[in-house]
């Protein structure tokens, strides 16, 4: 589990970047920024990898100043053939808990990469 503090300056910076006036509320996609954090021992096939889906569920609203813990894992990896050729799908899951251990949010990302053999 990694600590996650919802800091005012981070939320303000995020709000400004997405183009809204910061008003003490945490934008719903803020926890999506955690998608980028690395998972030790997992190397994603980065070049050309795109984001296919994002699902976020809140079990209670997130507030500035909240202290949470979160964990990330690779939930699934699969290959699918389509009109764009063979592509690899990676499902990452991030779950956040409050300090009492109650689930606050769950977020899953589907990332899509061209399969390696495609270019060979």
């Amino acid at each position: 589990m990694l600590p996650l503090k919802i800091k005012l300056e981070d939320v303000r910076r995020f709000a400004e970047a997405i183009g809204i006036r910061f008003n003490d509320r945490v934008p719903a996609t803020f926890v999506g920024t955690l998608v980028q954090a690395n998972i030790p021992g997992v190397e994603l096939p980065a070049p050309g990898m795109i984001h296919g889906e994002q699902n976020i569920t809140y079990y209670r609203p997130l507030c500035v100043g909240d202290s949470l813990n979160y964990k990330k894992c690779v939930k699934d990896v699969y290959e699918r053939s389509g009109k764009l050729g063979k592509r690899m799908f990676v499902v990452l899951e991030t779950t956040g808990y409050d300090l009492a251990g109650e689930l606050v949010f769950a977020s899953s990302s589907v990332l899509i990469a061209p399969s390696k053999e495609e270019g060979e």
Binding site: I18, R25, G32, V35, I50, H51, G52, Q54, N55
Partner: peptide, 30 residues
């Protein structure tokens, strides 16, 4: 960034919701 487009939909929702509620589930496909 797909997440930046998702954030615009999120803003559309929060501008509409105002103080009357919160987003509890938010799922998108790019």
């Amino acid at each position: 960034h797909g997440m930046l487009t998702m954030a615009q939909i999120g803003t559309m929702l929060t501008d509409w919701i105002g103080e009357e509620g919160t987003i509890s589930k938010f799922n998108v496909r790019f």
